[in-house]
Amino acid sequence: MFKLICTLYTEFNMGMNQQLLFFFSAIGAFNGLLVGLYFVFFIKPKNLSNKLLGALFLALSVRVGKSVFLYFYDTIADVYIQFGLFACWLIGPLLFYYVRSAVTPKSTLVKEATLLILLLSIIGIAINVLFSWSAYHNLWNYFIKVIYLQWLGFVVITGWILHKYRNKWFINSKNKPFRLWLASIYFGNLIICLAFNTGNYTSYIVGALSFSFVFYALILLLTFHKRRDELLFLKTKKYKSNQLNAKDAKELGTQLEDILKKERLFLDANLSLDQVAKLLNVHRGKISQALNEYLHTNFNDFVNAYRIQEAKAMVHNKRDYTFEAIAMDCGFNSKSTFYAAFKKHTGMTPSKFRDQVLKA
């Protein structure tokens, strides 16, 4: 009797474990389909990057869905198996063009991406129509190897693209959320790709579980980030909530010039955008917009331009001053910052400028 109870308990646990495994494997694929459709048809703006991301989610979901049902129900129709492998054939190219469209958006990329994905789709459809899974099972073993190698190849090439443009999208970009999102998309796909490629050595269901984990990590990131545009795009539209028309921008730019000249605020080494915004009683975003659109500069360069004018006058009038003393008197925090700003605004070093003054 005790042995029977133990056997029943063990079988019950195994059944529950199988159900949980199926649930966690399948839920990612199902929700991935919904998110993919949302990105392809409903999200705004409807640009190439969003459409490719949606298509990538759809392809991954279909591929993972095939794996889940084949693992738990090995009697599914051949057409579902072949459809899942066809989707897998497109994952690599979709990842590649999504990353390219996000990092280096170009108008010509639309045509290039469309042509290659269309060509690969035609090849995939032709193979699926001409060679059925049941009739050419041995041949499909070779097709699967080619599909996985192609997927892995595109993942490697995509990694090279990210490395090539690392200064733009990772090092120099101030858009940290975008860097996190793009890195998550890439490394998530790398994990899923490796899981499927090594399935023979681990477990066939590992790829599906990996997708569910990566997918929900991405969805949590997308859901809880306050500004979606910063997350999905390298460059976002500025000043959306603080629009200034041309007349207002010009007027605010004039006020900025007046207050810096009259109050000589630039001599304060700790001067900040927030301080100026408080003095003018305007939102800091509007000041940034006015500087960008009316004066074609940013706050630091705008203030430094006045400091350099002051420094040039001091070089003329106080020739016994050291450059460090001039830098401090003009509002710079350090000699190195002064040298960099001086060269940027005059095209020469302070020493060369002083030499010209002495020769005059």
Results as ranks from 00 to 15, higher is better:
residue 44 K to E: 02
residue 331 G to W: 00
residue 160 W to P: 05
residue 322 T to E: 05
residue 109 L to Q: 08
residue 45 P to K: 06
residue 39 F to Y: 14
residue 98 Y to N: 03
residue 68 V to I: 06
residue 132 S to W: 01
residue 222 L to F: 15
residue 267 L to I: 13
residue 210 S to C: 10
residue 255 Q to C: 13
residue 336 S to P: 12
residue 230 E to G: 11
residue 191 I to L: 14
residue 153 G to N: 11
residue 267 L to M: 10
residue 269 A to I: 05
residue 143 F to K: 11
residue 310 E to M: 09
residue 60 L to A: 00
residue 98 Y to S: 04
residue 223 T to A: 05
residue 324 E to L: 09
residue 242 N to I: 12
residue 280 L to M: 02
residue 163 H to G: 14
residue 355 D to M: 00
residue 67 S to L: 13
residue 266 F to R: 03
residue 200 N to C: 07
residue 125 I to R: 02
residue 58 L to V: 04
residue 358 L to E: 15
residue 168 K to D: 15
residue 52 L to C: 06
residue 39 F to R: 13
residue 210 S to K: 03
residue 157 I to Q: 09
residue 19 Q to W: 14
residue 342 F to R: 05
residue 347 G to H: 02
residue 47 N to C: 04
residue 323 F to M: 07
residue 35 V to Y: 08
residue 271 L to M: 04
residue 63 R to E: 07
residue 189 N to F: 04
residue 161 I to V: 15
residue 351 S to G: 06
residue 138 N to G: 12
residue 262 K to S: 15
residue 290 A to W: 05
residue 158 T to W: 06
residue 302 F to S: 02
residue 302 F to I: 00
residue 343 K to M: 08
residue 3 K to P: 07
residue 98 Y to I: 05
residue 73 Y to T: 05
residue 357 V to Y: 12
residue 178 F to N: 06
residue 35 V to S: 04
residue 238 K to V: 13
residue 181 W to E: 00
residue 212 S to Q: 03
residue 14 M to V: 14
residue 34 L to C: 12
residue 34 L to I: 10
residue 169 W to I: 01
residue 141 N to Q: 15
residue 298 N to A: 14
residue 165 Y to R: 02
residue 219 I to Y: 08
residue 221 L to V: 00
residue 65 G to T: 07
residue 31 N to E: 14
residue 20 L to Q: 01
residue 105 P to C: 02
residue 205 I to T: 06
residue 283 H to E: 10
residue 88 C to W: 11
residue 276 V to H: 03
residue 146 V to D: 12
residue 114 T to K: 15
residue 82 Q to M: 08
residue 78 D to N: 03
residue 296 H to W: 04
residue 354 R to Q: 11
residue 130 L to Y: 08
residue 193 C to W: 01
residue 101 S to A: 12
residue 137 H to C: 04
residue 111 K to N: 06
residue 168 K to W: 15
residue 231 L to V: 03
residue 102 A to L: 07
residue 71 Y to W: 06
residue 287 I to Q: 01
residue 267 L to F: 13
residue 315 V to C: 09
residue 214 V to M: 00
residue 2 F to C: 13
residue 70 L to F: 01
residue 237 K to P: 13
residue 205 I to P: 02
residue 200 N to I: 10
residue 198 T to S: 12
residue 91 I to M: 07
residue 204 Y to S: 12
residue 83 F to E: 09
residue 123 I to F: 15
residue 67 S to R: 07
residue 347 G to T: 02
residue 326 I to R: 06
residue 232 L to Y: 03
residue 359 K to P: 00
residue 42 F to H: 08
residue 17 N to V: 04
residue 220 L to A: 15
residue 149 L to P: 11
residue 102 A to G: 09
residue 273 L to Y: 03
residue 317 N to Q: 12
residue 18 Q to I: 09
residue 283 H to T: 08
residue 100 R to P: 10
residue 7 T to V: 11
residue 347 G to Q: 04
residue 310 E to V: 01
residue 357 V to L: 00
residue 332 F to R: 02
residue 262 K to G: 11
residue 280 L to Y: 00
residue 223 T to K: 10
residue 319 R to A: 13
residue 294 Y to P: 01
